[in-house]
Design a protein around this nucleic acid. Structure first.
Length: 473
RNA sequence: GCUCCCAUCGUCUAGAGGCCCAGGACACAGCCCUCUCAAGGCUGCGACGAGGGUUCGAAUCCCUCUGGGAGCGCCA
């Protein structure tokens, strides 16, 4: 029976997720969904020093927000769990024993200083730095001596010499490595903590992962991990290495260089669909030109359309997808999105009115906030161009507008007709000063609905204020 | 230092020897529409990193250079 295609995302909770992580996660998720397979989330928290519960919670929240639901992982345990590496110590111990028993791994007592010196000399000689093999053939006696001296060994994998390793990378094609280019690598630190190479590969195999998508920086790890799994008699997944995401300066995105985290983008009001639509097209061809609904994303993802060159993150592109995302928001979702940025309770139904008015006029919730004041509070001081608009029209215009309002009411077509009859103004000459007086600015939603949403008294007093401000005789 | 990878408009990309004096999207500029902003429509700007080959013909194949990236850890 063939296993369902299974992918995974395996973050370390040592910080917030950034866009590069998000893209890797998204692609893995889409690959699974496109094939009707499974998506697993595994937490690589073996480094208790740097991992934190708070980061873990934040990462899980960010992934859920992006729409990446895992079939197995934290909160969705199954027989292959636990899905936190910090809870898998017994499993690792068992495999360490086996590796050592069968001669695939050996204890190494070399000090870090010794190794650093060796590395330096190798580098100076123009050789690649590699473990010199000092402890490789250490007998029982030698070990006993080190132990007696109180040294704690690391466990090293014995890389078989003289072999050529070949495999197909899911995105980069055929790869070939020589085992002679790979030094014996560490599987377990002296303090007993398992290292990435080991638990990452082992867990993938144990959790039934069939396709691993990860950053290009892991490409050279792949032969080691395949070697390791082979020694354990486990089936290795297929690996695909995604090109890195780089910033405008061409340097890889990293949190410490100010790359925005997913969480920050979210706090700034970006919509998950905007992020996903952008990411789908970053270093990946074949997506249609227009907006793709989140649920349809998987249908547009194909591994063979993933590029091999580093992709630049460009916020103006993200902004475009944000615009699309807002456009495709329904009213309820829009209210949820805008809600937190609006004042507590501008009054019954007021919030819904605001949302309806602003739906197509703002890109971020922050831009909506000032409108709450415009509609239901005191008018902020007019902008410069609004003020110019006011003076261009003059007090007579606003006096006429006030009189017209008493006759026609707040219905824009009727009101405009009445004002036109009294002032001779029409079109832009009529609407723009009206807008300026009513909102204190020159941009914003359509005037008709705006007028209908404003209390009649507010309209009156703002027209009067404009008349006074422009110098009523 | 050594090994490996990558290279088309500002950005994401199409392009797998003639369909390409290179197509699309975003951005930018202009025009139209319009009470404004946005949206929408139209037009424009804009690239095969350089040099050598191979070929009747190269963005596509080969070589060199340049530029960028990755890896070589008791980091993940």
């Amino acid at each position: 029976m063939s296993r369902a295609l299974t992918t995974r995302f395996a973050p370390s909770p040592t910080g917030r997720l950034h866009l590069g992580n998000a893209r890797t996660a998204l692609f893995a998720f889409l690959l699974a969904r496109a094939a009707g397979g499974r998506f697993v989330l595994r937490v690589e928290d073996t480094d208790s020093e740097r991992s934190s519960e708070a980061f873990l919670e934040a990462q899980l929240a960010d992934l859920r927000w992006l729409g990446l639901d895992w079939d197995a992982g934290p909160g969705r345990e199954d027989a292959a769990g636990p899905y936190r590496q910090s809870q898998r110590g017994a499993i690792y111990a068992e495999h360490y024993d086996r590796l050592e028993r069968e001669g695939h791994a050996y204890p190494c007592y070399c000090s870090q200083e010794t190794l650093a010196v060796a590395r330096r000399t190798q580098l100076a000689r123009g050789e690649p730095p590699r473990y010199p093999g000092t402890c490789r053939e250490l007998g029982a006696l030698g070990r006993a001596a080190h132990e007696a001296a109180g040294r704690r060994p690391v466990l090293r994998f014995r890389v078989p010499p003289g072999q050529s390793l070949e495999f197909d990378d899911l995105v980069r094609g055929p790869q070939r490595f020589a085992t002679d280019d790979i030094g014996d690598f560490v599987l377990r630190r002296a303090d007993g903590v398992p290292v990435f190479f080991f638990c990452n590969a082992l867990d993938d195999a144990l959790m039934g992962v069939t396709h691993v998508l990860r950053g290009e920086d892991h490409l050279a790890n792949t032969p080691r991990q395949r070697l390791l799994l082979e020694a354990l008699g486990l089936e290795a997944p297929a690996y695909g290495h995604l090109p890195l995401l780089v910033g405008a300066d061409g340097a890889p995105l990293s949190k410490r260089r100010g790359a925005a985290s997913l969480g920050e983008l979210r706090e700034r009001g970006y919509l998950p669909g905007a992020i996903a639509n952008y990411l789908l097209r970053l270093g990946h061809a074949g997506a249609p030109d227009g907006w793709v609904e989140p649920a349809a994303l998987a249908g547009h993802f194909a591994l063979d359309r993933v590029g091999r060159a580093p992709a630049h993150f460009d916020e103006s592109q993200l902004l475009h997808w944000q615009r699309e995302a807002v456009k495709h928001l329904d009213e309820a979702a829009c209210a949820d999105w805008l809600g937190p940025a609006l004042p507590p309770d501008p009054g019954a139904g007021a919030r819904a009115t605001l949302v309806r008015l602003l739906r197509h006029n703002v890109l971020f919730p922050l831009e909506a906030a000032p409108w709450a004041a415009v509609l239901f509070g005191d008018l902020p001081a007019p902008s410069g161009d609004a003020e110019a608009q006011l003076h261009e029209a003059g007090p007579g215009f606003f006096a006429a507008a006030r009189a017209a309002l008493e006759l026609a009411g707040p219905d824009l077509p009727a009101l405009a007709r009445e004002i036109r009859a009294r002032t001779g103004r029409r079109g832009a000459d009529l609407y723009r000063p009206l807008r300026a007086a009513l909102t204190g600015r020159c941009d914003g939603p359509e005037l008709g609905p705006l007028l209908a949403a404003l209390p009649l008294d507010t309209i009156r007093s703002r027209l009067e204020a404009a008349e006074v401000a422009t110098g009523r005789a």
